[in-house]
Deep mutational scan, measured.
Amino acid sequence: MEVRTIKVFTTVDNINLHTQVVDMSMTYGQQFGPTYLDGADVTKIKPHNSHEGKTFYVLPNDDTLRVEAFEYYHTTDPSFLGRYMSALNHTKKWKYPQVNGLTSIKWADNNCYLATALLTLQQIELKFNPPALQDAYYRARAGEAANFCALILAYCNKTVGELGDVRETMSYLFQHANLDSCKRVLNVVCKTCGQQQTTLKGVEAVMYMGTLSYEQFKKGVQIPCTCGKQATKYLVQQESPFVMMSAPPAQYELKHGTFTCASEYTGNYQCGHYKHITSKETLYCIDGALLTKSSEYKGPITDVFYKENSYTTTIK
């Protein structure tokens, strides 16, 4: 009895394709271990004539594949690729409408935090270190965002349907971005203890939790000093293409032309909904596939993004 075979390709990165001759009487799992086709788990399936010449994702289970996976995804987590594939199996079914010149995501599976993050990423200057993220990001900007969303979920250790947080998501993504040249110098002034300067680099240099107003941050924000008295913390120097200011959701007025974009969060910790506000020729609110415009805006804002380049204080 002759062994019926077909020729397929296996890959971990969709760049390096490895030619395989597979036995049609055995499952993919018996031949390769966990195997995925377009995100779908085909591990328990036997090869079919229609699979001839198709590319299958496999887990990096030998040295060659491990090197290829690390170079593309910059992670050695053995569960990463499987999590990416199972997320992709959902995100490829989502709709990605162009809204006001940006790629958004039609609401499904509690994905409003991903839509808000995706919209924000198209408006701030950011370059990702893992080629996987950078490639998928370019495709997302062009309207094909399924891979990018699935990668975000995998890097953030999230599953489809789980509630997510924009600030946490951005923080994970910033860790995989090139923020080497970003720098922030802060000064804390206390009447009792004097003053202390701190220099922050990388992710810490672009994120701040405690106030939404970048102007206020430049002037000074009140913080408790270690001595128990009130101290003032203010920005001395900022070198970065953008800054992200966050605070627990509270009524906040966004003035046209003073910011790049913002995240609105309605609801409580267990259950809520994100919308995205962007400042173009007027203010726009993007909620999944829905767009509304207004000249002014007041609502429960939790993150505001500002364009920056270089700032030095005039406070002496």
Rank of each mutant, 00 (worst) to 15 (best):
L65D: 12
T282V: 10
A145S: 04
T313M: 15
V12P: 11
H48P: 13
K191L: 11
Q197P: 06
Y306I: 03
I15G: 00
I286G: 00
E264D: 08
T282D: 11
T91D: 11
L118N: 02
S279A: 05
W107L: 03
A115M: 13
S181L: 09
L200V: 09
G272D: 00
C271K: 00
T11G: 12
R66H: 11
A87M: 05
D287N: 00
S295L: 14
A146K: 01
C182L: 08
Y297H: 10
V236K: 04
F32V: 14
T5E: 09
K54D: 13
M244V: 10
S240A: 02
G39M: 09
Y284R: 05
I45M: 12
Y36L: 05
G39K: 03
I223P: 01
S79Q: 06
L173T: 03
A132T: 07
Q30S: 13
E162H: 03
V12G: 06
Q20S: 13
Y84L: 10
Y208H: 14
F217M: 07
L88D: 04
P130K: 02
T43F: 09
Q251M: 15
N111E: 00
L37R: 13
Y113V: 03
K95C: 12
G299C: 11
K218S: 03
G29C: 03
H74W: 04
T103H: 08
D41C: 12
T313K: 15
L88Y: 13
D109T: 08
L153I: 09
A262N: 01
T55F: 07
T282H: 11
Y284L: 15
V206A: 01
T27E: 12
L179R: 01
K316Q: 15
L114Y: 03
F56L: 11
G33Q: 02
Q270F: 13
F217E: 00
T278P: 01
R141Q: 11
Y234G: 01
E296K: 09
Y57G: 03
C182W: 04
N110A: 05
M209V: 15
T55K: 11
Y172S: 10
T55A: 09
C225N: 00
G39Y: 09
I124K: 04
T278H: 09
L81K: 06
K54G: 11
M85S: 05
I286E: 01
L235K: 01
Y214P: 00
I6H: 07
K46H: 08
M24C: 11
G288N: 08
M85E: 13
R139T: 10
P300L: 07
T169W: 03
F128S: 05
T64Y: 10
T43A: 13
K218H: 01
M170Q: 03
C156F: 04
G288H: 06
K307Y: 12
G82Q: 15
D135H: 12
I6P: 07
D41K: 07
S310A: 10
A250T: 14
L17H: 09
V236T: 03
F9E: 07
T198M: 14
P34M: 14
Q98P: 08
V304D: 00
R66Q: 11
S79R: 13
K183Y: 08
F70N: 11
L186I: 14
Y214Q: 07
A262S: 04
Y96I: 08
C182I: 01
C193Y: 02
D109A: 06
I105T: 04
Y269K: 15
D180L: 04
S171F: 15
C149M: 12
G220I: 04
Y84K: 08
Q20E: 13
H256M: 13
A262T: 01
W107E: 03
I45K: 14
V3S: 12
T313I: 12
I6D: 07
C156A: 08
V206F: 01
G220P: 05
E125G: 07
T198Y: 13
E308R: 04
G101Y: 06
T75M: 14
V203H: 11
G267P: 13
Y137V: 04
G257W: 00
R83N: 10
G161D: 06
T292V: 08
V203T: 08
Y113N: 06
H176V: 05
V189T: 13
A289Q: 11
W94T: 07
K183S: 08
Q195R: 11
M24D: 07
N157H: 11
K219E: 02
Q251R: 01
T103S: 06
L114E: 07
F56C: 11
K280C: 10
V189R: 09
Q196K: 13
N178S: 09
G82H: 13
V243C: 04
T198I: 15
P131T: 03
Q134C: 08
Y96E: 05
C156W: 00
Y36S: 04
T5N: 14
A132E: 05
R83V: 03
G33F: 02
A108Q: 08
N110S: 07
N89W: 12
K158D: 00
K293T: 13
K44G: 13
K229F: 08
N61H: 07
D41M: 12
A87G: 02
P300C: 14
G101F: 00
S213T: 03
Y137Q: 04
G210K: 01
P300R: 10
A115I: 01
V243E: 02
S240N: 04
V189L: 09
Y274T: 01
C149N: 04
S263M: 10
Y274G: 00
L173Y: 04
I277M: 11
V189D: 14
I105K: 07
Y36Q: 08
E68M: 06
S246I: 00
A231K: 02
K95A: 07
V99S: 10
A40C: 13
Q237K: 14
N49K: 11
L186E: 13
M85H: 15
D287Y: 00
S171P: 04
L153R: 00
Q238F: 02
V22Q: 08
E264M: 09
G299K: 05
T232H: 04
C193R: 05
Y73S: 06
L186P: 01
C112H: 03
A87I: 04
E264P: 00
M170I: 09
G33M: 04
K229L: 12
M209I: 15
L179K: 11
Y138S: 14
D165K: 02
D135C: 08
K92L: 12
V99M: 13
H276G: 01
D62H: 10
Q251S: 08
R66I: 12
R4Q: 07
V185C: 04
P97N: 03
R141T: 10
C182G: 12
K307H: 11
A132V: 01
Y284S: 10
D38P: 06
E296Y: 13
A145M: 02
G82D: 15
L81T: 07
K191P: 15
G194F: 07
S213F: 03
A108H: 09
N110M: 04
N111H: 01
Q98F: 15
Y297G: 02
T27D: 13
T169F: 01
A136Q: 10
T76N: 09
L59T: 11
T120G: 01
L179V: 03
V185Y: 02
E168K: 13
L212E: 02
F128L: 05
T282S: 13
Q30I: 15
F242H: 04
I6E: 01
G161F: 02
Y138F: 12
G39H: 11
K7W: 12
